[in-house]
């Protein structure tokens, strides 16, 4: 196993790993609750995945197979950079195949390929506190969670409806975990919210700059906030993926020319490539 000279396996020292591991165990035992942890300065900037990286570094072992995605893609520069960091400091195998991975670190998406029991999905979280825009003071929001005073969030969503005729939150859409804590699922599109509900995989969330970890255990109820007369709904596209013809995936818009012509393709590059390899062909496929 090739590991970077002068650094411990997975970069973090063992005492730091133990501290994060204990925080993760409490996070699993209290689903959706934000556990404070002694986040360390990492060799990547805050805001670029330091929370996810610390969680992954505390989890990863020599037998793991790691997948890293950003915006659903394995080959965006930040995903490439984080993957190469872990290769350098752990020597573990990496993959782009969702099914092969034991650990998946992600920013802003949940893979389209359904996750299996035993897999762990690690989210990079910029702002963990769902009430932050409604109440900036941490001391206050902590009390609000303790009392489950979540009325302000419903009021905010209702004001959206009054102004726009619908809930205008499109990503990082708030959820209630296990009928108790209000949680931010990180800036995944609300399209991915239904995948949080009773997912067989363990989902761990790391916010490095904000120094919090939290978890959704497997098969845990995760409900997106809504109203009887305005039920939660996900994004829909009028056309399938231009490359693989999928109609069930989240699509990115790509502008093709100066005239504003555009196409829609899967944001999950592995899912799209897999479908194309299996013979599915979109309108603009090679």
């Amino acid at each position: 196993m090739s590991v970077q000279d002068g650094y411990n396996f997975a970069y973090l020292d063992e005492q730091t790993k133990r501290m994060i591991r204990r925080a993760l165990l409490k996070a699993v035992a209290i689903p959706g609750y934000q556990v404070p942890f002694g986040s360390r300065e990492m060799p990547l900037p805050y805001g670029w995945g330091t929370g996810g990286i610390q969680v992954t570094a505390s989890l990863i072992g020599a037998d793991d197979v790691l997948k890293v995605i950003d915006q659903g893609a394995d080959d965006t520069t930040n995903a490439v950079n984080i993957r190469s960091f872990f290769r350098k400091v752990t020597g573990v195998a990496t993959t782009e195949q969702t099914r092969e991975a034991t650990l998946i670190q992600t920013r802003h998406r949940i893979p389209e390929t359904p996750l299996a029991a035993g897999q762990i999905l690690v989210f990079q979280v910029p702002i963990p506190e769902p009430l932050r825009w409604l109440e900036p003071r941490e001391a206050e929001t902590r009390t609000m969670h303790a009392l489950r005073e979540y009325g302000v969030m419903h009021v905010k969503l209702y004001e959206d409806i009054a102004r726009h005729g619908r809930i205008a939150t499109t990503y990082d859409y708030p959820v209630i975990v296990n009928d108790h804590y209000l949680m931010r699922p990180s800036p995944i599109p609300k399209f991915d919210n239904p995948k949080l509900h009773r997912n067989p995989a363990l989902m761990l969330f790391g916010a490095g700059r904000e120094k919090r970890v939290y978890a959704v255990p497997p098969y845990t109820d995760v409900r997106s906030l809504d109203f009887d007369d305005h039920p939660f709904a996900i994004e829909r596209w009028e056309q399938p993926c231009a490359l693989c013809a999928a109609t069930d995936s989240y699509l990115d818009e790509i502008i093709l020319d100066d005239a504003g012509n555009r196409m829609f393709v899967c944001s999950d590059t592995e899912y799209c490539a897999g479908r194309q390899a299996a013979g599915h062909k979109g309108a603009l496929a090679a």
Binding site: N8, F9, E14, R21, L25, L59, A62, L202
Partner: peptide, 12 residues
């Protein structure tokens, strides 16, 4: 390093 990691993953 490896033993602590495996034990932790077992507990998790």
């Amino acid at each position: 390093v490896g033993d602590a990691q495996r034990c932790f993953r077992g507990v998790l």
